[in-house]
């Protein structure tokens, strides 16, 4: 009979164990840090809510984070109503999405359905360069080019435009988001099986009928997911609004006025020397927690939609 040697003569394999432990340790560190960040956000926010009630924060319509130097000072009481910040954030994000959705979707459809492979290989990387521009560059583009241009145009046609209008920040943010939408949507449109296009064309539908009635319909959940991800990106975007949006917490829906956003206020509250016991400084953590909650919910919903979509054709 043939003898096969299967007894372990080398002893345990230490490298295998060591590698495994290293990898587990690395992933645990990443998770612990994330949990730590969320917890510190939560703890500081909790301290803030001992000074200002949750209700005043979430539903208050006046944002003016002051801390008195003397107790008898005029306006000693600060107001920490986040509503103007939330509406400002939403206004700018809405303008950004209104700009980015048609541009991004149209480019995605063009790339996926009309462009020849050669064109696609040139245009797609070009679009993705937009995603590589540092947001600070977009920021000064918004503050120094777009905002004055809008203000000038507005003045020419007799409109009063703030020099740091929501419109300027929103438009530039929209341009920044275009590659995000076009790239994700392009992927989902490409994932629509060719057999569905064939079916539609085989019935005598034109190319545009096929795209409108079959391709976009099939890709809709994925496109919706990509739009939600883009929205969440817009809401969390900081640099452009710090440079181009205002500081004044106006409660307005007029895109020509200056508004401020959650991110801008966090930056303003925490830059410079700060005393960490005051409600003013702590409010930054409450705002951070609010922002985190909004984007987390959007991301989870978007991810769910996208996953659901990708399972559909497996």
């Amino acid at each position: 009979m043939q003898h096969i040697n299967i007894t372990n003569t080398r002893g345990p394999r230490p490298l295998e164990q060591a590698l495994k432990i290293t990898m587990v340790a690395c992933s645990v560190i990443a998770i612990i840090i994330t949990i730590g960040i969320v917890l510190s956000l939560a703890f500081e926010a909790y301290r803030f809510f001992q000074l200002v009630s949750l209700q005043d924060f979430l539903f208050g319509t006046k944002w003016s984070p002051q801390t008195a130097i003397r107790s008898d000072q005029v306006g000693a009481e600060g107001s920490f109503g986040a509503i103007p910040l939330i509406t400002g954030t939403l206004l700018i994000s809405a303008i950004a999405m209104a700009t980015a959705t048609p541009l991004g979707l149209a480019s995605a459809i063009y790339l996926a359905e009309y462009a020849s492979p050669t064109t696609r290989n040139v245009v797609k990387p070009l679009l993705e360069i937009l995603a590589g521009i540092p947001t600070v560059v977009y920021g000064f583009f918004a503050a120094l080019t777009v905002a004055p241009m809008i203000r000038w145009t507005g003045t020419e046609i007799g409109l009063e435009v703030a020099s740091e209008s929501a419109l300027a920040a929103g438009l530039v943010m929209g341009i920044m988001i275009v590659p995000l939408i076009s790239s994700l949507s392009d992927d989902v449109i490409n994932a629509v099986p060719q057999s569905l296009r064939d079916a539609s064309l085989g019935l005598g539908a034109t190319k545009s009928e096929t795209i409108r009635r079959v391709v976009l319909l099939s890709a809709f959940p994925g496109i919706a997911g990509s739009l939600l991800l883009a929205t969440s990106r817009a809401i969390g975007e900081t640099m452009i609004v710090v440079m181009a949006a205002g500081m004044a917490a106006n409660l307005t829906a007029n895109p020509l006025q200056a508004v401020t956003t959650i991110t801008v206020q966090i930056v303003a509250l925490l830059t410079g020397d700060q005393e960490f016991e005051s409600a003013k400084t702590l409010s930054a953590f409450a705002l951070g927690l609010l922002l985190f909650t909004i984007t987390l919910v959007l991301n989870v919903v978007a991810q769910k939609i996208v996953n659901h979509f990708s399972e559909q054709y497996d």
Binding site: S195, D198, A199, L201, G202, L203, G204, A205, S218
Partner: peptide, 20 residues
């Protein structure tokens, strides 16, 4: 071509109903 395909229908190898 569009009218031609309306006159000459096609059924494919793999059933491909629209997601409707």
């Amino acid at each position: 071509v569009v009218s031609l395909r309306a006159q000459v229908g096609m059924v494919f190898q793999k059933p491909n109903p629209f997601p409707k």
